[in-house]
Design a protein around this nucleic acid. Structure first.
Length: 154
DNA sequence: GCCAACGTTGGC
DNA sequence: GCCAACGTTGGC
């Protein structure tokens, strides 16, 4: 399986690229959307590239790069009663929700903002620039990945 | 804080 | 299985 690329969304008030830099790695917990779950469970593999995207931020956009360090496994927070992400319907022998682990690679010198992404013709089909695109885990093509890296603003 | 765009839930 | 009501996301 060749290396693939993903965009993971998170509000910086919940978890930012600075938090990831400090921690080194993190579990991408709390995804409670089936489409995103399927990607986490079936598609995202160790070594894949991750665009770390800050939503509801100022500015919103890609703030860093990470790498998948561990592929999909059951989301432990779904089993923790009282936890914000607890889901009684998710059973340990038949889990509903999945996570991946990611490892910090680098923080971008400047956020590649959503406006910049929208202004780039090569990214016109990228999922994140489309209106109403709420999926928190999105596939990114190799061409899109390379384009975003070129736009880093160094 | 507003609200459009979605996703989910639940009555029928 | 339809669809209205409701909840959430996320840009602005």
């Amino acid at each position: 399986m060749p290396k693939r690329y993903w965009l993971l969304k998170c509000e910086p008030s919940a978890y930012s690229i600075d938090d990831l830099e400090r921690d080194g790695s993190a579990s991408w917990e709390g995804v409670r959307n089936y489409q995103a779950r399927n990607l986490l469970r079936d598609e995202i593999k160790p070594g894949d590239g991750v665009l770390f995207y800050a939503s509801s931020a100022d500015p919103t956009g890609v703030s860093g790069i990470a790498e998948v360090s561990k592929g999909g496994y059951p989301d432990p927070t779904a089993f923790k009663k009282g936890h914000a992400y607890f889901d009684p319907k998710s059973k340990k022998d038949n889990p509903t929700w999945f996570v991946v682990d990611i490892r910090f690679v680098k923080k971008l010198p400047a956020v590649v903002t959503l406006d910049q992404l929208k202004a780039e013709p090569a990214l016109k089909n990228m999922m994140v620039v489309r209106k109403g695109s709420r999926l928190s885990v999105q596939p990114v093509t190799e061409a899109e990945w390379n384009t975003v890296l070129k736009m880093r603003g160094e």
